[in-house]
């Protein structure tokens, strides 16, 4: 790490950070403040920085009109199940790659990682007919499975890296103690690897929650629609003039991710940095 010695250098660095923070957070702030502005204040010629009074109408409209709650429920269901399924599969695959010896281990790992090299749009071309063939188009299950496709390679690699630095002696001690491979995995390895498990779960959850392309393509019915396409179809079109509603709905849609992240961020950071220091 570099060290800033003079106060001028420190001040300059802080100013630079503030500038970057401004570019990152001003749009978020502007969206939030717009969500609390009444239509009169929102569309006046000279925009105001702060809402003059905290108008909650946009939030109430976003919830009461349209299918936002249903879409949130669908998103929560598909994202949570795909995240947990992805983390479970990545843990098993990563553990196998890290701690077992078998033929073609490296090519197999490369094969899994190679899925990450294709643009998601390209993968969609093959996923679509596969889901169609098993009647899973326009179903939450089909969408859940498709989400796993793009989160699994990186998640497997993340779990592999974590397991790789787990001391073999722990596993050997459990073996000598008489535990089977399955028992070693869920009684010893997984409890120790909880931060890594949380990290890949969050990673997959955020991927799924923020997805637009797959959910737009694979889901066509209103009852299965998730929140991303729901917002897009309702608010982003040539006839829309409800920017306050769009901002309020967006914040309601982002709330679960922020909440989950805030709840698990300690484990998330721990998981990301766990391999850095022995």
């Amino acid at each position: 790490m570099f060290e800033l010695r003079s106060w001028q250098a420190k001040a300059g660095f802080i100013a630079l950070l503030l500038l970057i923070a401004f570019f990152l957070f001003f749009p978020v702030y502007w969206a939030l403040s717009s969500a609390f502005k009444g239509n009169g204040e929102l569309y006046q010629l000279e925009p105001t920085m702060f809402p003059s009074d905290f108008y909650l109408g946009h939030f109430l409209t976003a919830i009461s009109e349209g299918n936002l709650l249903l879409q949130l429920k669908n998103s929560l269901l598909t994202s949570t199940s795909s995240a947990l399924l992805n983390a479970a599969l990545a843990s098993l695959a990563g553990y196998s790659f890290a701690k077992f010896e078998y033929p073609a281990k490296k090519p197999l790992m490369l094969l899994i990682l190679s899925a990450q090299m294709f643009p998601f749009g390209v993968l969609l071309i093959s996923i679509y007919p596969m889901l169609q063939a098993v009647n899973l188009l326009d179903t939450k299950l089909g969408l859940t499975i498709s989400y796993i496709v793009f989160a699994l390679p990186v998640s497997t690699y993340m779990m592999y890296s974590y397991f790789k630095q787990l001391p073999n002696e722990l596993i050997e001690a459990a073996k000598v103690d008489g535990a089977s491979n399955i028992k070693i995995f869920y009684r010893i390895v997984m409890p120790i690897s909880f931060p890594a498990f949380i990290t890949v779960t969050l990673y997959a959850f955020m991927w799924s929650w923020n997805d637009l392309l797959y959910s737009m393509t694979l889901i066509t019915s209103e009852e299965n629609r998730t929140v991303g396409p729901g917002l897009l179809l309702r608010y982003i079109n040539e006839n829309n003039s409800d920017w306050g509603g769009a901002m309020a709905a967006s914040f309601l849609a982002a709330a679960p991710v922020v909440f989950v992240f805030a709840l698990l961020q300690k484990q998330f950071i721990g998981g990301v940095t766990s391999g850095a220091v022995k």
């Binding site: 002696e169 050997e172 001690a173 459990a174 073996k175 000598v176 535990a179 120790i192």
Partner: peptide, 20 residues
């Protein structure tokens, strides 16, 4: 034979205690 079948117990250099 598997280690568990050998009637042995082992103390490792790093102790290998289950941390959780």
């Amino acid at each position: 034979w598997q280690p568990s079948k050998r009637e042995i117990a082992m103390v490792f250099q790093s102790y290998a205690l289950y941390p959780h």
